[in-house]
Amino acid sequence: STKSLGNGTSETCAEFRVKYVGAIEKLQFDMSRTLQEPLDLINYIDAAQQDGKLPYVPRDEEMILGVSKYGVKVASPDQCDVLHRHSLYLIVRMLCYDDGLGAGKNLLALKTTDAKQEACSIWVYQCSSSEQAQSICKVLSASFDSALTSVK
């Protein structure tokens, strides 16, 4: 469902329907250093779900996750209220993987940091399929590339 709004004014270059699972905010820096490897991050999310810090099942309401050169914005379907705004330069990495519950759903884990890079946060969303998750990763990767080339 990649829908790029060609009218130029809109910041969003691709929008996806996802569900919000939860977030673990303000992890101290030394903790965030242990979450560099993808598997460490996945295991950390697993443990958080088992400890009840993160739910297994996302909230029912679908959200619109928009990826643009500015970053990732998560808003309600009518886009009236913005739930999260992750600016591109504070996004450290994005990870997508099968949630292992057998329904083919993919989890999207977004690791962000703060401007002083002292703490990091983990934001978890659920995609309807791995294809959707892959598309989101592709668009974000393109955003990183375009941000990189524009800096030079």
């Binding site: 250093r33 598997l39 990495r93 990870l95 997508c96 292992g100 940091t113 890079q117 990763c137 990767s141």
Partner: peptide, 17 residues
């Protein structure tokens, strides 16, 4: 829980962080 393929996108600004 068994995890299948994992796709990672890293911000070049934080490579290795």
């Amino acid at each position: 829980i068994y995890k299948s393929a994992v796709t990672t996108v890293v911000n070049p600004k934080y490579e290795g962080k």
